[in-house]
């Protein structure tokens, strides 16, 4: 069933644009060019961060971190192998992508851990970055309970990512 979603979305959006007398192909070309610019802007960060993450993996510190976090993580039903991703996700988007890609490569994209990592990446955001951009622009100094509520939402995301992957793909 999920195989239909993406192709049909492509068809539907182009058809709607045609009905509105827009030129779907040209619109997509403009958007795709923007996507390429966005990619170029994040490549340097990905190179630096993957270097750092793979050094950390090679040193054995990531495994150590996972073992250290295991008791807390198993309480929440989150695989301890994802510890590094969970810790870095609210702070930096590109670092989270680097850590997530490395984890998916290490455990395989179709493994339970690989899928959990993918769902975590797809359903959470760079919380602290978002807060600083929005509140910085509006001149907000006292954030009250925003960080607590947003981090609680993140934790829910990590727990639910682990749970849904186990439910949908677990054997």
């Amino acid at each position: 069933m999920t195989d239909y979603i993406v192709p049909l979305l492509l068809l539907l959006s182009a058809a709607i644009a045609l009905r509105k007398k827009e030129s779907p192909y040209d619109l997509m070309l403009t958007g795709a060019a923007d996507g390429l610019k966005l990619l170029v802007s994040i490549v340097p960060a990905l190179v630096l961060l993957l270097t750092a993450v793979m050094m950390l993996r090679a040193s054995g510190a990531i495994d150590m971190l996972s073992q250290f976090c295991a008791p807390v993580f198993s309480f929440f039903g989150i695989p301890a192998e994802t510890a590094m991703l969970v810790l870095i996700r609210p702070i930096s988007g590109s670092a989270a992508l680097a850590v997530g890609a490395e984890l998916m490569a290490e455990y395989g994209p179709d493994s339970l851990i690989g899928r959990t990592v993918a769902v975590m990446l797809g359903s959470t955001e760079t919380t602290f970055y978002t807060i600083s951009v929005y509140f910085g622009a509006a001149g907000i100094k006292k954030t009250r309970y925003t960080v607590a509520a947003a981090l609680l939402a993140d934790l829910t995301g990590f727990v639910m990512a682990s749970l849904t992957v186990r439910l949908f793909f677990g054997s």
Binding site: L9, L10, S13, A14, I16, A17, K20, E22, P24, L27, M28, L29, T30, G31, A32, A33, D34, G35, L36, L38, L39
Partner: peptide
């Protein structure tokens, strides 16, 4: 990334 930036732009301009 390119494809979905393109599709996103399309969906926006198509009024979705």
């Amino acid at each position: 990334l390119c494809l979905w930036s393109g599709v996103g732009h399309l969906m926006d301009k198509a009024g979705m």
